[in-house]
C-alpha cells in the first residue's frame, strides 16, 4: 500500500481546539506540509500569536515559541538575528498582526528582516468572542458592530498586505484563500515560496490567507467558504501583490 495522502510529520496526530470548519486547521497543515517538503523540521522556529492560534505549538511538531499580543515579529527579529541559520516564521491572525501588532509588523517589514509571515485573515476576533477586527468588512455584523461595520464610526477594512507591499524591504506578498482544493493548493505553493525566500536570503515574505470563521460569522462551514468567495474576495482580491 502506498500512501497518496499521509498525515504530515510536522503535525502532531491530535485533535485541535479549533471549531468545526475553522481555517486554522487547514493553514496549520499547509505550513506543516511545507516544512516537511523543504526538510527543515529541525531548523524551523515558529512564533505563535495571541488569538485562536495561541496554542499552535501543541499541534506543530517543531520548535515554537509564543510572543506577547502583536509582538511576534519583534520576537522573530531577535531569534533570526541571533540564530541566522534557523528558518523563523510567525503565524498571526488579523487582530495580532493588523491591530495591536501593526507597529511591530510595519517596522519589521520596513527593516526588511529576512522572515516569513503567515497571516490569517478571518475578518473577526475569534478567540475573544467575535468582535470587529480591523479587517472586518463594511456592513459586517460582529459582536461590537451589531448593525454592521459603519465606515463613519469604525473606518474601513485595513488592507495590511497592500500597505506592506509598498515598503522596499518587503520582497514577497501574496493573498490566497482557503476555500477550495484548487485555492488551497495555491496557498501551499505560496507558503513554500515564502519559506524558500527566507532560506535563499531574499527577504521579508508574507502570505495572507483568507480563512473561514463559521462560528463568529454565524453560518455553516460550507456557507463560510461561500461568503469568502462571494463577499470577502471583493474587498481582499487574491493573487500576488508583490
Amino acid at each position: 500500500m502506498e500512501k497518496i495522502y499521509a498525515h504530515p510529520q510536522s503535525l502532531y496526530n491530535v485533535s485541535s481546539h479549533y471549531c468545526a470548519g475553522c481555517g486554522h486547521g487547514i493553514a496549520h497543515r499547509l505550513v506543516a506540509e511545507a516544512v516537511d517538503e523543504l526538510g527543515i523540521r529541525e531548523k524551523v522556529i515558529a512564533i505563535a500569536p495571541v488569538g485562536c492560534a495561541v496554542l499552535a505549538y501543541d499541534y506543530w511538531n517543531f520548535d515554537c515559541t509564543e510572543a506577547a499580543h502583536g509582538r511576534a515579529l519583534a520576537v522573530a527579529t531577535a531569534i533570526k538575528r541571533v540564530r541566522p541559520d534557523n528558518v523563523v516564521f510567525t503565524y498571526q491572525g488579523d487582530g495580532d498582526l493588523a491591530a495591536i501588532g501593526t507597529n511591530e509588523t510595519i517596522h519589521t517589514a520596513n527593516r526588511g528582516e529576512n522572515l516569513t509571515v503567515i497571516f490569517i485573515n478571518n475578518a473577526v476576533y475569534g478567540m475573544t468572542g467575535g468582535q470587529m477586527a480591523p479587517t472586518s468588512l463594511i456592513g459586517q455584523k460582529t459582536a461590537t458592530t451589531l448593525k454592521g461595520r459603519d465606515p463613519a464610526l469604525q473606518g474601513y477594512p485595513l488592507k495590511i498586505s497592500e500597505l506592506l507591499a509598498q515598503l522596499p524591504g518587503v520582497k514577497y506578498v501574496e493573498r490566497v484563500a482557503l476555500i477550495s482544493p484548487a485555492e488551497i493548493n495555491k496557498a501551499r505553493q505560496a507558503v513554500l515560496l515564502a519559506l524558500r525566500n527566507q532560506i535563499e536570503g531574499v527577504g521579508f515574505s508574507l502570505v495572507e490567507m483568507l480563512s473561514p470563521c463559521p462560528t463568529y460569522w454565524g453560518m455553516s462551514a460550507q456557507a463560510a467558504m461561500g461568503w469568502i468567495k462571494e463577499t470577502m474576495i471583493k474587498e481582499f482580491p487574491l493573487g500576488r501583490i508583490k
Partner: peptide
Amino acid sequence: CRFCATMCPDCCIEIEKE
C-alpha cells in the same frame, strides 16, 4: 483526487493506493 484530505481542517483523512 485527494480533494477531501486537502479540504479537511482537522487532518482526519489519509488515502492509500494498492
